[in-house]
Every structure is written in structure tokens, then in C-alpha cells.
Amino acid sequence: MLEQIRQRLTQALTPTELEVVDEGHLHAGHAGEGKGHFHVRIVSAAFAGQLPIRRHRMVYAAVDDLMDNGIHALSIDAEDK
């Protein structure tokens, strides 16, 4: 799943920096034992001039079909550079 997320974000947003972290271990005891919890830190020129909510929407659009199909929760830090 990590590699699929990386591929989708790279293809859609051409990041200069990209970090995808599986945070499932932080959610043990939750439904599915925390499976599908990820954090993305992404820096992309595509975010220039975009409000944070728009940046998040761009990330969600890139991984849309993975939501609820491998991704249960996704936290995002999206920056322009």
C-alpha cells in the first residue's frame, strides 16, 4: 500500500519531497487493528498559491480509489516549494 500511495502522488503531483509513513501501529485496538492508517508529507510546486484545504483535496484526488480500499485514515502535511 505504501508503494501504491507513493506512485499515485508522484504521478499526480510531481513532488520534490515525499514521505509516506504507515502509522497503523499507533492505532492498535481500533477497528482493523489500525490497518490502513497513513501519514503523508509532500512538497510540490503544484500546491503553489493553493489553500491548505485545496492541497489536501489534491492529495485525496490522487489516491481516491484507495480510500476505504486499503487506506482507512490519511493525515497530510502538504507544502509548496
Rank of each mutant, 00 (worst) to 15 (best):
Q7V: 04
D22I: 08
E19S: 12
G29T: 01
L51V: 14
A12W: 01
G70P: 09
E17F: 05
F47N: 10
T16W: 00
R41Y: 08
K81V: 05
K81D: 06
A78G: 08
D22V: 01
I42R: 04
G49C: 12
Q4Y: 07
A62D: 01
L2N: 11
V40G: 08
Q4V: 02
E3S: 14
V63L: 01
A31L: 08
G36F: 01
G36N: 08
S44C: 07
E19N: 13
R54K: 15
D22C: 12
H37I: 02
A45L: 07
I71L: 11
R8E: 07
A45S: 13
G36C: 02
A12L: 05
N69S: 12
H39D: 10
S75L: 02
F38I: 08
R41D: 13
G29K: 07
E33F: 12
V21D: 06
A73D: 00
M58N: 11
R6M: 03
D22W: 10
Q4R: 14
M1F: 06
N69I: 05
E23V: 02
E23C: 04
R55E: 00
A12Y: 02
H72P: 15
A12I: 04
Y60G: 06
S44L: 03
D77F: 03
V21W: 00
H56F: 03
L51W: 04
D65Q: 15
I42P: 15
D80K: 10
R55P: 07
R6F: 00
T14E: 14
D77W: 00
E23N: 09
Q11K: 12
V59A: 11
M58I: 00
T10P: 10
E3D: 14
A12C: 03
T10R: 13
E19P: 06
D77I: 08
D68T: 12
V20D: 01
E19M: 11
I53N: 07
D22K: 07
V59L: 08
D80A: 15
H39Y: 07
T14K: 12
R57P: 14
F47R: 09
I76C: 05
K81I: 11
G34C: 08
G29L: 06
H39E: 12
E79N: 00
E79W: 00
D64V: 08
E23F: 04
I76M: 02
L2A: 00
S75Y: 07
L13Q: 09
A78P: 07
V43P: 15
A45F: 00
H39Q: 13
M67E: 03
A28G: 07
A12D: 04
